[in-house]
Design a protein around this nucleic acid. Structure first.
Lengths: 201, 201
DNA sequence: TTAATTTTGAAACGTTCATTTCAAATAGAT
DNA sequence: ATCTATTTGAAATGAACGTTTCAAAATTAA
């Protein structure tokens, strides 16, 4: 990592870092952290064992990068959805539908990488737990801002505070993602979304 | 397993089968399936390696027994809660509070063993997936019957069918259990429960 | 071309994994 | 006491694990 301090810059990384992380993310997403072996990652990325360690540190370090990349991917998709929506309730609804599309795309959905990570690793590794808490916190902030806007524009009722609805939506979204792993039925999933949102109207 | 066909019945199992499964369940619940090693199970149960294989088959077989035992434990707790409740909406609420108590009891909740299993293993192993689907199906049936009763007694509104509310509650419960892993805050969890139930009134 | 630095490949590291093996100890039924 | 089937303990199995090592190949600035 002293590359920028060097005068010479011989042999530089040849592989596409983003692509490698994308492939690694696929492995972790499909198998989970513990069941994903270094050999799986070697096979999926096309990189050599030692190259992975050279460039990414350890399996856990690589996993953390995948989590962050996944989080960023969500962030990008989300802002795209939000720009399209004319009001808060539609934005939230579109968000759920965006997830549903992802869930139904693969025949065997493996759920949300981050939610799976909560289930598999929360309160075990410190770095992971710290990431998960930060992720949760930013998700809640995001939801709260969205609800607050909806309440100001009278799209969302004020039976509960924005903070309370944010917690509810956060919890509901996790449940929805979990449910979709086994319920691969568009009608059922749509019904769940409608019922989740019913209380906000 | 030909024991019952034998005339003689020498040396019989000495350990308490239920207790062994309870201890094994603790390990699986804490670490997840993949991260739980046979050594962990040997340590936790006090049984010898070979005794575990003799009496329970494989690690996966033992895990399946733990899942079933966990499911049965839920069933027992649930029926106790239901007998105490005077109406369906109270029953559902008590159910969520029952979960909350479990979640707050341990400082570091590890979520629901079965939900974690969905996240870690669904759509991988056939036996596991079959168990999970059966569990989901019976949970949905249970919820639907409860909601139907509530709707008959005018405790639960008929904006949605009992089947739709069952799906919603099932999804919500999973989300609630996931959320509780990182949100160890009674006020927040209580708020989530209230918001989940608001739509049924 | 040379010097500098990284990637690469292949092998090996020591550990841990789930599972098996088997002789010895054990205990119920006769 | 004897027979019979099972549990038990300890060791061993081979495979897979994450990680390290290191010489050779590769690449680029000078």
């Amino acid at each position: 990592m002293k590359r920028s301090f060097q005068i010479d810059m011989p042999k530089v990384e040849t592989f596409n870092r983003e692509l490698v992380i994308k492939h690694a993310t696929g492995v972790f997403h499909d198998k989970g952290y513990n069941a994903a072996s270094m050999q799986d990652l070697v096979d999926a990325t096309g990189l050599n064992r030692s190259s992975i360690y050279n460039s990414f540190g350890s399996k856990l370090d690589l996993f953390l990068l995948c989590l962050k990349s996944y989080q960023y991917g969500f962030h990008k998709k989300t802002t795209a959805v939000l720009l399209d929506a004319d009001n808060a309730i539609n934005a939230i609804e579109s968000l759920f539908y965006m997830y549903m599309d992802i869930m139904l795309k693969d025949n065997n959905d493996r759920g949300c990488l981050i939610t799976n990570c909560v289930s598999e690793m929360a309160n075990h590794d410190e770095k992971i737990t710290s990431f998960l808490k930060q992720n949760q916190s930013s998700m809640l902030d995001f939801m709260e801002a969205l609800v607050k806007k909806g309440q100001l524009n009278n799209n969302i009722n004020t039976n509960k505070t924005a903070n309370e609805y944010a917690l509810y939506l956060f919890s509901s979204l996790q449940g929805f993602r979990m449910t979709g792993i086994l319920v691969q039925n568009k009608k059922h999933l749509t019904s769940i979304i409608k019922t989740i949102l019913q209380t906000l109207n």
